[in-house]
Design a binder for these strands. Structure first.
Length: 654
DNA sequence: GTAGGGTTAG
């Protein structure tokens, strides 16, 4: 019997039980499938399940039962797997019931599939109950249970279960034995709990049992080490893998892309391209596009987009979404829109990426338009979609719209606001000067306010000169993030504005005594397909001398045009002259200068900054855009600033 | 004929 023919026959006669009632189809069906033979049905169901045609597989299973063909232990696993693939708990339960009737529910093969089915449908308790009922278990039963916990966000329980497994393995005298698949599952639990010692422990076990050369185990190990902050070890595991498959490369590239090591991600991708033995795929491209998005590598991103088109992949929803996100984060919102419009299939992530993109560019109206269209298209917004919607309102200062969607998301969409949603609202209220409302909202929060929340309130207190609430926010921030000096500076500024010089002095001594740090600011500029990094006062860049010389000339022109340094956001513990020096060499200024001197006249300059842009850089770049007649785009940690002819797209609201 | 690993939105 040819399976593919069987499949077309089956498809022809399917739609449930019509195969029995439609006389024209019965001869066709009979030609390929002996409808009384269980093994014929098993082959058909297995083939359909393998083709991921789960709906047809379940129809075949139903038809078979209609014909009263008795299923055997080979029938159920594939049928149940199809239920899992469709998250069809009802059919899964029916299959469980039938397996029970035929005395097969405790069969190792059937029960493993059932455990997997219950887990995938979110019914972990049923999965565990069945697992406990099993008279004997093998490593597959255990693995199904491990992954069940991991996929339901209970990785800690998966690790606890692993301890039970080791006990049973020790007592079973060879009946139960760990394999690489089980180890992959355990490692994925490690990577989700981000525990360094547990990952190292499992790694030791892997070496002891001789699995360290297994490619699958190595691939997951890389991810687990990266998730607990040890990217160097991930790279070591990668380098030491004897047989790297495409997933090994993808994992390492994704690790780099996710931790923001974009240059390393790109470099590794280039060596993968040079390695003719391995063909990269959609996953690779997605990861590299993410690296471009992070580092603003637009030229490289464009090449990858073209490459995806050549490979016929631009319409897949993964790649499409990555491309949209890349253009948004590289400041090319119109290109993002074009890519977005061309996509035939869009999911909630695609829509949310577009909403977020418009929001970050301060184009709240368009963000909301996309959001409305998403609803009309019948795609349900989720938690993150509403973060994007509220962030769009916050970037544009649209308090009423923000308020509306903040209450609607819970009342109409049943999504409980999380710390990110509150963050947008505190920001909106705070900047509108409604400080006590903002403070009351914080007090009403069901989730614990984080440093973003208190940071927004503190910044608003500075803006609106409120000492009392500023002190409250600052004291919370000193607890949450005691080493970050940014908050001490802000509070000190609030005191200075109020003329409370004793308190300013107190803060200065406070900071001095505590070895406080500020995350180092850096800016990125892409030039000829390479991303250049600038730190504040950079002397590492090979052309730094030329850049400083260029800046001297630039400052002369700027001062002629009326530029006055604005020091309000500078530390109080340096003298006036030092202040002037450090502000002149902020990383975004160096990056803009490098962009100006190294690009052709008229070209847009694009800078990515890891922190928020400071007030002085903002006014300086506005002026630069005017006197040098250039469009300059700066993406800071919060949003985009498009500078043109002396103005910024944020309208100085940021 | 059963179980496992990599990717996209704030």
């Amino acid at each position: 019997m040819k399976i593919s023919n069987a499949k077309s026959a089956l498809v022809a006669v399917s739609s449930g039980n019509q195969c029995l009632t439609n006389p024209n189809l019965i001869p066709l069906f009979n030609k390929y499938v002996d409808k009384t033979s269980v093994s014929s049905w098993n082959s058909v169901i297995a083939e359909l399940a393998r083709d991921r045609d789960s709906v047809e597989a379940l129809r075949a299973f139903a038809s078979m039962r209609k014909l009263s063909v008795v299923p055997n232990r080979s029938t159920f696993p594939c049928a149940i797997k199809s239920c899992s693939a469709l998250f069809d708990l009802r059919s899964g339960k029916q299959a469980h019931q039938q397996a029970y009737v035929f005395g097969l529910d405790l069969d190792l093969f059937v029960s493993s599939a059932l455990i997997d089915m219950y887990s995938k449908c979110g019914y972990l308790v049923d999965a565990r109950t069945l697992f406990e009922e099993l008279p004997q278990r093998n490593v597959v039963s255990w693995t199904s249970m491990f992954t069940g916990y991991v996929q339901n966000g209970l990785s800690h329980d998966a690790l606890l279960l692993f301890k039970d497994f080791l006990k049973e393995e020790g007592e079973s005298e060879g009946e139960v034995h760990i394999d690489s698949v089980a180890l992959v599952s355990v490692l994925s639990a490690c990577s989700r709990v981000s525990g360094k010692s547990i990952t190292e422990g499992v790694h030791g076990f892997i070496v002891k049992r001789g699995f360290e050369e297994d490619t699958g185990v190595g691939n997951t190990l890389m991810d687990a080490y990266a998730k607990c902050g040890n990217v160097g070890v991930s790279r070591k595991v990668f380098d030491e893998l004897n047989e790297k498959d495409v997933i090994s490369w993808n994992s390492m590239i994704a690790v780099y892309a996710q931790v923001g090591k974009s240059a390393e991600a790109l470099e590794l991708f280039y060596s993968l391209v040079r390695d003719k033995n391995i063909h990269y795929n959609t996953v690779t491209l997605s990861a590299v596009l993410l690296a471009c998005a992070h580092s603003g590598a637009l030229q490289v991103g464009k090449c990858l987009h073209n490459q995806a088109i050549k490979m016929g992949l631009q319409e897949t929803v993964y790649i499409g979404t990555s491309v949209v996100d890349m253009y948004c984060k590289c400041g090319r919102i119109e290109a993002a829109k074009r890519a977005f419009d061309q996509m035939k299939e869009k999911n909630v992530k695609t829509w949310s990426a577009m909403v977020a993109g418009y929001g970050a560019h301060g184009r709240a109206k368009e963000a909301l338009d996309v959001f409305y269209r998403m609803n009309s298209a019948g795609v349900k917004p989720n938690y993150i979609t509403f973060v994007s919607v509220l962030a769009a309102c916050s970037h544009a200062g649209m308090l009423d719209e923000g308020n509306y969607w903040f209450s609607t998301m819970e009342n109409k969409f049943g999504i409980e606001p999380g710390v990110e949603h509150y963050g947008c609202m505190i920001d909106l209220l705070g900047r509108a000067g409604r400080l006590s409302e903002a403070y009351n909202l914080i007090k009403k929060m069901k989730v614990k306010p984080d440093f973003v929340i208190w940071g927004s309130l503190l910044a608003a207190c500075r803006m609106h000169k409120n000492v009392e609430l500023g002190e409250i926010s600052a004291s919370k921030l000193f607890e949450l993030d005691p080493k970050n000096c940014g908050y001490y500076v802000l509070l000190s500024n609030i005191y200075a504005d109020a003329g409370r010089w004793d308190d300013v002095e107190r803060m200065r001594i406070f900071m001095k005594n505590r070895g406080l740090t500020k995350p180092p600011g850096f800016s990125l500029v892409e030039f000829k397909g390479r991303v250049h990094v600038f730190l504040v006062g950079d002397v590492e860049h090979p052309e730094h001398e030329k850049i400083y010389a260029y800046m001297e000339k630039l400052y002369v022109d700027l001062e002629e045009a009326g530029y006055m340094p604005n020091m309000t956001s500078v530390l109080h513990d340096v003298n006036e002259e030092e202040k002037g020096m450090s502000i002149r060499v902020h990383s975004e200024k160096l990056a803009v200068a490098f962009g100006l001197m190294s690009s052709v006249p008229g070209a847009t300059i694009q800078v990515i900054k890891n922190l928020r842009i400071c007030g002085d850089c903002h006014s300086m770049i506005k002026l630069v855009s005017k006197i040098r007649k250039r469009e300059i785009v700066v993406r800071d940690s919060k949003r985009f600033h498009h500078f043109r002819d002396g103005f910024c797209s944020c309208k100085d609201y940021w």
